[in-house]
Design a protein around this nucleic acid. Structure first.
Lengths: 253, 253
DNA sequence: CAGTGGTCTAGACCACCCA
DNA sequence: GGGTGGTCTAGACCACTGC
């Protein structure tokens, strides 16, 4: 520690609360257990409910708590590891892919996406919606943008609809030779649609993983996947490793 | 009541505010510009200050705004890309490394760390503190845990202190053959120390990147790096690519 | 010093879940 | 219907910045 300063600085109440609750979670509660309600906790600690909630929000952000309206606050299990590396998808839709295709439309993508793909503005692309489930829970929602030029054999053909269509587009994608992929991760907040799909409220924190699939120097497809930040720990570059839940409960202390 | 919308689903005020402000940011403000203060904004939109603040918090989380106590709220520049892949560090401290070593101590690591390293409990390890700066701004703080067994030639030797000591340990590490590394990313909140180093308040959202450096199947070192989630976009697997700021301003619409 | 964002209070009502 | 968390209000005071 070296220089321990004799704090003249008063710690905010909610921060101190967070610490106290955090320790209580480790020592006095087990995973899945339900906490006393907010009004009681606030009274017990002698603070306003808003202050107590600030502390709970912190802990929820850190994946320690799970709160559900109408139900209560429960102790969250350790975050699950979900693999996001090149090992995971060769191409989207390849065997072993953790994603489930939902449907597919042909629409003009947002400007920021059109910019990354080489497509011109107002040029529609295939948009495949997929969802990812792990341990019985939805963990991510994805939009896959695929320019028509990446699946040339589908132009002019009468495509089916729904999941069949999505699978047809993905199957076509496999014909391309995947050179490499580039991933970026950043913090975002769930929009209304993602929130519904992830069983969260709008604005919930998500990890946005953007993947560029590159063939011959060109971006052949672009994936924007939003992962629940509260329940997921993203793993990269696990050569061959599969997603793993935290081992047998090992929490105390 | 001029019922502009008949929404059977009433959108929360703060969420609607977020949308309105978000559009205003794109159309009426430029990067670095300072917004009216919270009290005035709240009055202007006819909401309580707390509600206005909820909207601002969202936007700050998304990296759109930057708020500083005593100063004001400003429009944030686009997030900067910081590369985190194997391309970045061969070994920590290798040439081209983006990190700056600060100091090094010999301490017993947290239980969760000791568990990942093979070390027994209560066995001290070298802990190197490093910091990463990009575009003149601190973006990450790191703790590097290195078991004594990974740098055997240093045992019993009289080590210097401060940055010299950190560099000595890192230099010794280069002698090992790096098999591969595994990265995980998850959301966290800055503790007091990280917050100070990152020029943020405690509890600020951070992206925690944990890297296991593996030699001959063993974890030879463990890095826990906390990146500012508001200003950083992590990039992975950019073979050879260097960190790049967003290109020339291209924001509108 | 004045002005900013950060913390905190004590209420109120609403949306949702479940017995 | 009773209980939960989610939203919102109208205040107050504090900590920090910069002039």
């Amino acid at each position: 520690m070296g220089t321990t300063q004799l704090e003249t600085v008063p710690e905010p109440k909610y921060w101190h609360l967070r610490t106290v609750l955090s320790e209580a979670l480790e020592n006095e509660f087990s995973v899945g257990e339900i906490l006393p309600n907010e009004r009681e906790l606030a009274a017990r600690f002698g603070v306003a409910r808003a202050t107590l909630r600030q502390a709970l929000e912190q802990l929820e952000l850190e994946g320690r708590l799970q709160r559900r309206r109408g139900v209560g606050t429960t102790v969250a299990p350790p975050r699950m590891g979900v693999s996001v590396g090149p090992a995971q998808h060769g191409w989207p839709g390849a065997p072993g892919d953790a994603w489930q295709a939902l449907d597919c439309t042909l629409e003009v993508p947002p400007a920021s996406v059109a910019e990354t793909l080489v497509t011109g503005r107002d040029e529609p692309v295939h948009i495949v919606r997929r969802s990812r489930v792990s341990h019985g829970q939805p963990v991510a929602a994805e939009l896959l943008y695929i320019p028509a030029s990446s699946v040339p054999d589908l132009t002019g053909i009468d495509l089916p609809s729904g999941t069949a269509r999505a699978r047809a587009v993905l199957r076509e994608l496999q014909h391309l030779e995947l050179e490499r992929q580039e991933n970026t991760v950043e913090l975002g907040s769930a929009n209304a649609e993602d929130a519904r799909e992830l069983d969260r409220l709008p604005g919930a924190p998500v990890l946005v993983v953007t993947t560029r699939f590159i063939t011959r120097g060109r971006t052949a497809a672009l994936s924007v996947a939003t992962y629940r930040a509260d329940t997921c720990r993203l793993t990269f570059g696990d050569t061959g490793a599969v997603e793993v839940h935290h081992g047998p409960e090992r929490r105390a202390s």
